[in-house]
């Protein structure tokens, strides 16, 4: 039973990181119906930014917690700038093009950013400092949930609550929902749709960057390719939950994280992906729009 809880909590941690990335996919899809394949790279760039900032701050002798916070903020700001720029360069000029064009452009952007980091940094794995302090908080069960996992769970929960409030109650949140539901009608009530799309990329990128910092400091190493794998997983989670749906992305991520964790724990870590994708196939057979996805309505 203890083992079960350990796997359960591990799965939740993993799932909540997926959720931070999946939200970016789903929000962008909700608004411009584009799978932003460069999103995983934004997450990777966030992790690299945090590594550089953390190294500098460590040399300056700041304490662990301050480094974590400052590195996360720097990563979020830097990634947001990347997300914003990617949209302006690779997607905005293709706004009225056939749907396949921005998709190809997204894949191109993903390859470009990977190779850019490969050239600018290195192809090797770089050690990532454990920014999250190790502390005992749950004697004698601390082996079930490490402090890094606790910090990840709390941080992601807080971020998701804030995001929900933002989307539900703020002006920009309402504009985002309206734009997602009917873009030209949103323009007719005075919404600057280009601004809303930019904001969506900025918010999604910030979330991915924070996810990048948390997971890198939990795992302890990064390289230029981490965005691809995390991106595929988070994308899977978004599809699982119903792409375009924000609660769906969170639910899908948690289910995916738990499935992987249990598959690793009870079967073998070699089979974690098999179970994850088998689950995806199963859910899509019975609910093609995803768990919380809306089947597309015919507009008359």
């Amino acid at each position: 039973m203890e083992y079960f809880f350990e796997l359960f909590l591990g799965g939740l941690t993993r799932g909540s990181i997926y959720a931070l990335i999946a939200l970016g996919y789903t929000m962008v899809y909700g608004i411009i119906e584009l799978i932003n394949f460069a999103h995983g790279e934004i997450y990777m760039i966030g992790a690299f930014t945090a590594l550089i900032v953390a190294s500098v701050l460590t040399v300056m002798g700041l304490n662990e917690f301050a480094i974590l916070v400052l590195a996360s903020i720097a990563a979020a700001v830097y990634s947001a700038a990347y997300g914003y720029t990617v949209e302006k360069i690779a997607y905005k000029p293709l706004r009225h093009a056939p749907r396949l064009s921005p998709l190809i452009s997204a894949i191109g952007m993903s390859i470009f950013l990977q190779n850019y980091v490969l050239l600018a940094q290195t192809s090797d794995f770089l050690p990532f400092p454990s920014l999250i302090p190790d502390f005992e908080f749950w004697e004698p069960y601390s082996h079930l949930l490490r402090s890094t996992q606790l910090v990840i769970l709390v941080t992601t929960t807080v971020i998701m609550v804030l995001l929900t409030l933002l989307i539900k109650y703020t002006k920009i949140g309402k504009a985002m929902r309206a734009t997602a539901q009917d873009r030209s009608m949103a323009m007719l009530v005075g919404v600057n749709v280009n601004q809303v799309i930019s904001m969506t990329f900025v918010i999604g990128s910030c979330l991915a960057a924070v996810g990048g910092v948390l997971i890198a400091s939990h795992i302890g190493q990064i390289n230029f390719f981490i965005g691809f794998i995390a991106g595929i997983k988070a994308f899977t989670a978004a599809v699982l939950g119903g792409v375009g749906s924000i609660p769906g992305a969170v639910l899908g991520s948690l289910i995916l994280g738990l499935t992987e964790s249990f598959a690793t724990g009870y079967v073998s870590s070699d089979y974690e992906d098999v179970f994850a994708f088998a689950l995806l196939v199963l859910i899509l057979i019975f609910r093609p729009a995803g768990l919380l996805g809306r089947s597309t309505m015919q507009k008359v």
Binding site: K174, Q181, V189
Partner: peptide, 22 residues
């Protein structure tokens, strides 16, 4: 516009709120 174009998943109050966007 033609066909009314209500935001289908916003509530009635939120739809009206969108009218005051500016």
């Amino acid at each position: 516009p033609e066909g009314r174009r209500i935001f289908p998943y916003l509530t009635v109050a939120e739809n009206l709120d969108m009218g005051t966007f500016l």
